[in-house]
């Protein structure tokens, strides 16, 4: 027909293409969930070397760690790690704490006044371990210091036991899907996606920030491995055979989809189905004494056919 009709039809066609493209895209994204949150460090350096602290070969590493510490940490924590006005002392905090705060990207802070937040770690694994080695060499560890786990093996973790312990001790803050949530007073329980098994282990044992600290008296070494196994194997790669997991926040997201997508699509279909098909003869070109006439054609499906038929 006329030019405007062709334009109109083209617009609808491209809209349809866009919708189907996003549909496919969303699906690929959903399928690729595991890629969105890569788990495990790319370079998992074995931390066993840390145990041999007195070997002569360690002197070099100690120097390297010192350099990194002085360059990146000493401004706030003091050159001898004894703390400063805006940062706590690091003497005796233990290797696990240092390792966790560095590999989670909480430290070093973006600005000296900023709040710690998840960001890509500034140092690679070897550098982190160098700093850990340096800081732990400054003072003897306090009793109960878990140390950096060496050779953490979760391949034989009992995920069922881990799930049970997770639901009891972790889910109250991190949510049962590990999505994380806001606690009172601006505190956040961070999401558990994209953290390494070592970080999970260290967080349980050291209780960073407001997180409680779970020692071997409450969660046995085997149970910690179970929990770490559950987090890394299942929380981070959830079984979602039903489609997009909607952020793992449960009925809030589901209700949103149900109302705005579900009921919305039904209403769009109703818009299309409910109105009388009109032909040009039906209408006079001025819109007087307008009844609550058909007032829209943003039909969900088959919109262009609808128009073509009426105007063919």
């Amino acid at each position: 027909m006329t030019a405007s009709h062709a334009t109109w039809r083209r617009a609808l066609l491209s809209l349809a293409l866009l919708v189907s493209a996003s549909f496919v895209g969303v699906f690929l994204l959903g399928g690729g969930r595991a890629e969105v949150y890569p788990s495990g460090n790319s370079t998992e350096v074995d931390a066993t070397s840390l145990t041999s602290q007195d070997s002569p070969a360690a002197a070099n590493q100690l120097a390297g760690g010192r350099t990194l510490f002085v360059e990146n940490c000493s401004t706030c924590h003091g050159i001898d790690a004894s703390g400063g006005d805006r940062a706590p002392p690091l003497l005796g905090v233990g290797g696990a704490t240092v390792d966790l705060w560095l590999s989670s990207g909480w430290m070093p802070l973006a600005e000296p006044t900023a709040e710690p937040e998840r960001k890509p770690a500034k140092f690679d694994r070897a550098q982190v371990l160098e700093i850990v080695r340096y800081v732990t060499s400054l003072a003897p560890a306090l009793p109960g210091d878990p140390g950096v786990p060496s050779g953490l093996d979760i391949s034989h973790a009992n995920v069922a036991e881990g799930f049970s312990m997770f639901a009891l001790n972790c889910a109250p803050c991190h949510t049962i899907t590990g999505a994380g949530d806001a606690l009172a007073g601006g505190i956040q329980a961070p999401p558990l996606h994209g953290v390494t098994k070592t970080m999970v282990w260290e967080a349980i044992r050291t209780g960073p920030g407001n997180m409680p600290r779970f020692g071997p008296g409450t969660i046995s070494p085997a149970q910690v491995v179970d929990i770490v196994g559950y987090v890394v194997k299942d929380i981070q790669r959830p079984v979602s055979p039903g489609g997009l997991s909607l952020g793992g926040v449960g009925p809030v997201a589901e209700g949103f989809v149900g109302l705005f997508v579900g009921v919305g699509l039904c209403l769009l279909a109703a818009l299309w189905v409910g109105d009388r098909a009109e032909t040009e003869e039906d209408g006079e070109h001025d819109g007087h004494d307008g009844p609550e006439g058909p007032d829209g054609d943003e039909d969900g499906e088959g919109g262009d056919d609808h128009r073509e038929l009426a105007h063919a």
Binding site: F163, S164, A167, L168, A171, P172, C173, H174, T175, I176, T177, D181, A189, P238, V239, S240, P241, G242, G243, L244, S245, L246, G248, G250, P251, E254, V257, V261
Partner: peptide, 19 residues
């Protein structure tokens, strides 16, 4: 869209809870 994936939630136990 996946709805109510109860396997991720686990069974109800009165002393367990999720945020």
């Amino acid at each position: 869209f996946q709805i109510n994936p109860v396997w991720l939630y686990g069974p109800y136990v009165p002393y367990k809870v999720s945020y």
